[in-house]
């Protein structure tokens, strides 16, 4: 059986890198932070496009305040999957459920995904999430991992991604980095671009103009949260059923929560059992 090239190439260590390789496409997003106004139209557009459930995000905008009164600034940092040219998530997936498309998209095959979340652990950018057990449109996938698709369904129809469409500031610019005439390629040659965690060598396809190192830094983000944000995160951990059970609320006994998490795991037995039974019924009894 011969595989289409994109599937075959997901064997081996990695998909060959395509950045700058003639004859290939490399879709990329440049985010011009000088133009980002933190309006979060991108976030809502993306959520609406895919019916993304509450508590998980394909894209989001991080916000930081800098400086001492009265010399202060606000910084925005839109985030999404980087569609890495050297994606760790693809390398670590045991079932080839996630793969790199030949044009540079890193994509999910929902019907292959077993929901093991290896890719989530592997992704250095938090770009992936497990879809909760319940969502608005029951016909869309659940309990498999999902992520930004660079809106391949739109791009293939000649449209920009939904978040680019919606971007009020015009900060998100999308196109083929390998095409020297594209806007992204021109920006790449004209402006200083930065990427997140360059030291990891993932070769992201999402790059930023005017990035601020502090908001881009993992350690800084952990250390410099407001009390409000900490509390929100703790509420999130308490109330959002992630079906992954690794969340520990700060300031509460750790091991008690570990046991609680195991209890949470046990509580998934009914809905997962239902899935198992349904599958059995569908296969043999219908």
């Amino acid at each position: 059986m011969s595989h289409p090239p994109n599937q075959r190439s997901s064997y081996g260590l990695q998909t060959p890198r395509t950045r700058g390789v003639p004859g290939t496409k490399r879709y990329a997003m440049v985010i011009d932070l000088r133009k980002c106004i933190g309006c979060m139209s991108c976030v809502v557009a993306c959520k609406a496009e895919y019916g993304v459930p509450l508590g998980v995000w394909r894209t989001w905008v991080k916000v930081a305040d800098k400086g001492k009164y009265p010399n202060t600034r606000r910084v925005f940092m839109p985030r999404l999957c980087n569609h890495c040219d050297y994606p760790v998530c693809v390398r670590n997936c045991p079932t080839q459920a996630t793969y790199k498309h030949k044009d540079g998209f890193v994509l999910q095959r929902y019907n292959r995904c077993i929901g093991c979340r290896t890719c989530m652990v592997a992704c250095p950018y938090n770009a992936r999430h497990l879809i909760p057990a319940k969502r608005t449109d029951d016909n869309l996938p659940k309990l498999v991992v999902d992520k930004c698709t660079f809106c391949i369904h739109r791009v293939k129809k000649g449209l920009v991604p939904a978040c680019v469409q919606a971007c009020v500031g015009g900060a998100r610019i999308f196109g083929d980095m390998n095409d020297p005439n594209s806007e992204v390629a021109q920006l790449a040659s004209k402006e200083k671009l930065t990427v997140l965690k360059p030291e990891l060598g993932t070769s992201p396809s999402v790059s930023y103009i005017g990035g601020d190192w502090e908001i881009m830094d993992e350690a800084h983000s952990y250390n410099n949260r407001t009390a409000q944000l900490k509390e929100e995160f703790n509420t999130f951990k308490r109330n959002h059923e992630g079906d992954a059970f690794g969340d520990i609320v700060e300031g509460e006994p750790t091991m008690r929560q570990v046991s609680k998490n195991f209890g949470g795991f046990l509580r998934t037995i009914p809905h997962k059992a239902k899935e198992v039974v349904d599958a059995f019924v569908n296969l043999y009894l219908r």
Partner: peptide
């Protein structure tokens, strides 16, 4: 346009992409 992709005006379902 200078840009290769349209900025909008059409829309497709994420999976059922056959017709706008």
């Amino acid at each position: 346009h200078a840009m290769e992709l349209e900025l909008g005006g059409q829309d497709f379902h994420q999976i059922r992409t056959f017709h706008p």
